[in-house]
Structure formats: structure tokens, C-alpha cells
Simulated scan of single mutants.
Amino acid sequence: MLVSEEELLRSGFSSAELQAVKNNVESYGGTLEQAIHDLARRFSRMIWIAAIFLAIFIILVLFSSGIKIIAGGISLVLGIGFMLLAQPPVLCYKSWRYWRAVQS
């Protein structure tokens, strides 16, 4: 499959976001298709990790004391915050949405 800039712009990427992806490809190598696929996979992983964090928090609420619920909630929020800082969530979401549309 060949990913083109025009398709990405039509699917919701802004020109600045597309330029950021292209700069990354130029700096670190690879193709535009690989970069979009990697960003889409990052979004999927981020959703799975957030779901696991939510399950852990639900278990804390059901089986733990008040102070542990508060401490666990704060640590899970910080974990999700660090996860969002480590990757561009908007680019990942748009890549995931584009990749899903192209695959179907």
C-alpha cells in the first residue's frame, strides 16, 4: 500500500502535522507509510494501556482502602500523563483513523 500526502490531507491531517511526520521520516529514515503505521500502532497500544489502567483502578476501588485508592488513582493519572507526553496523541489518533479506513 502506498500512502500519499494528498490522501493524508483529505483524511484530516493538517499541513503542519504532515510536515512534522515528514521531518521525522527525513531525520530518522523510513517511509511515510511506515511512520503512519507506527503512529497508528502507538495509538492502539495507548488505548490498551489506558484500559488496563482503568481495570486496575476499578480493582482498587472494589478491594482497597481509601488512601490506597487515592494514591493509586494519582499514580495512574500520572502514568497516563507521561504516556501522552511520550507521543503525539493527535497524530497517533489521526494515523490510526486513516490506517483503519485504508485497511477496510
Rank of each mutant, 00 (worst) to 15 (best):
I59R: 05
I58E: 13
Q19P: 01
S95K: 01
K22Q: 15
L60E: 06
Q103G: 06
I69E: 09
A55V: 08
F57T: 05
G73I: 06
A101M: 11
Q87K: 07
L76K: 06
F63C: 06
K94C: 08
A35T: 06
G73D: 12
I67T: 03
I47Q: 08
A40N: 01
A101P: 01
G72S: 10
G29N: 09
W48S: 15
E7K: 15
L8P: 10
I36E: 02
Q34A: 13
V21D: 01
A86T: 02
L62T: 00
N23G: 08
S15T: 07
L8Q: 10
K22N: 09
G73A: 10
V3A: 04
L32N: 03
E26W: 02
V61S: 06
F43M: 14
S75P: 02
I52P: 00
A71T: 10
F63I: 12
F53W: 00
A71G: 13
F53R: 11
L85H: 13
I49F: 12
V25P: 04
M83C: 08
R45A: 07
V3F: 11
A101Q: 14
I70W: 07
F82T: 09
W99A: 14
I70Y: 09
M46L: 05
A51E: 09
E6D: 15
R42W: 07
